[in-house]
């Protein structure tokens, strides 16, 4: 039996579909556990990705990792799960380690593959500079899946949703306020990312980056120096000490490609680099390169993408 913990507080994120798809590849008995207010109608579709049943706790809001751990642990014992799957996102990073201790179950954090014939799972290590093969020695295994590591796949039909309440106990963390910018594409989940660096010369020049991102339906990101001098918010900083991402397409504009930056983005499937300096180290890590001035190239690229999108409609 496999248990997948899914966060449904903002609807079903892509990470939820990825983790259920992943679980289905490991076995046929997949139970999903979620919590909060998501309607049962919005959860039945998890069956299409492989869930046989969805359990939902209406009393736990998911803000306290300790409370969530008690809930998940109780459900693991109730259904006799031998594998527990999380997304390696902010909730998975806080809850999976606690559950590991509580169940004395080894945790494979940040998995990018399903287990091989020997049970070893690939994880990103050294901030994406290397891959490790990890094995678990305990009876119960916990795996947290790095976002964007597999594509969601529909294989079945809707499944039943049941309530399970009262297993979490009280929360110790009190939420005072929550700020969520509306309408932005979340960087760790984004399939397309447009990123820019010091080559842009100033924060006032980000309009063309945002236009390009908008034409593609991409998230925006930046290099560390740009976040450090305050041109862009810290949460956009990708790299070894920022967010590590693995989108399908990463377009880097005016970023030289220091090893620390590459570490955070080299899981990207395709990399496009735009830089005035033909010797910029980023070109060595790129699939496609444009040697040219961003101020000329980016408006042209945006226009070309808009033209392409129109031709697709």
């Amino acid at each position: 039996m496999i248990l997948v913990y899914v966060n449904s507080s903002n609807g079903l994120p892509k990470a939820a579909l990825e983790t259920v798809t992943y679980a289905k590849k490991l076995g046929n008995q997949v139970v999903v556990l979620t919590n909060g207010k998501a309607s049962s109608e919005s959860l039945i579709c998890l069956g299409e990705y492989g869930a046989t049943k969805v359990l939902v706790d209406r009393m736990v809001d998911g803000e306290d990792p300790q409370q969530l751990t008690r809930l998940i642990s109780a459900v693991v014992q109730n259904i006799g799960a031998k594998t527990v799957i999380f997304s390696h996102d902010l909730i998975g990073k806080a809850v999976a380690p606690r559950l590991s201790v509580r169940l004395q179950a080894g945790l494979i954090a940040g998995a990018i593959s399903i287990p091989d014939a020997d049970g070893a799972v690939k994880v990103n290590v050294f901030s994406g500079k290397a891959i490790g093969n990890v094995k678990v020695s305990s009876d119960i295994k916990i795996i947290s899946l790095l976002p964007n590591s597999i594509q969601p796949e529909k294989t079945g039909a809707n499944c039943p949703v049941e309530e399970t309440n009262g297993l979490g106990g009280a929360a110790a963390i009190k939420v005072i306020s929550t700020k969520k910018p509306e309408g932005e594409i979340l960087l760790p989940e984004a399939e397309l990312v447009v990123s820019a660096g010091r080559g842009l010369k100033g924060p006032e020049n980000w309009g063309m980056i945002e236009n390009l991102a908008k034409s593609l339906g991409a998230a925006t990101a930046c290099s560390r120096p740009v976040a450090d001098i305050g041109w862009r918010p810290h949460h956009e900083h990708v790299g070894q000490t920022g967010v590590a991402i693995r989108p399908n397409l990463y377009i880097a504009i005016g970023i030289s490609g220091a090893i620390q930056h590459l570490a955070g983005v080299n899981g990207s499937k395709v990399i496009v680099v735009v830089n005035t300096d033909a010797e910029a180290p980023f070109f060595k890590a790129a699939d496609y390169g444009v040697v040219g001035d961003a101020f000329d190239v980016i408006p042209k690229l945006t226009a070309a993408i808009n033209k392409f999108k129109e031709s697709q409609n």
């Binding site: 179950a105 070893a120 290397a130 891959i131 490790g132 094995k135 678990v136 020695s137 990399i271």
Partner: peptide, 13 residues
């Protein structure tokens, strides 16, 4: 509870 059995470096582009 866990052990790293081996490592690899990603193929260069």
């Amino acid at each position: 509870l866990t052990s790293f059995v081996s490592y690899s470096v990603p193929n260069s582009k």
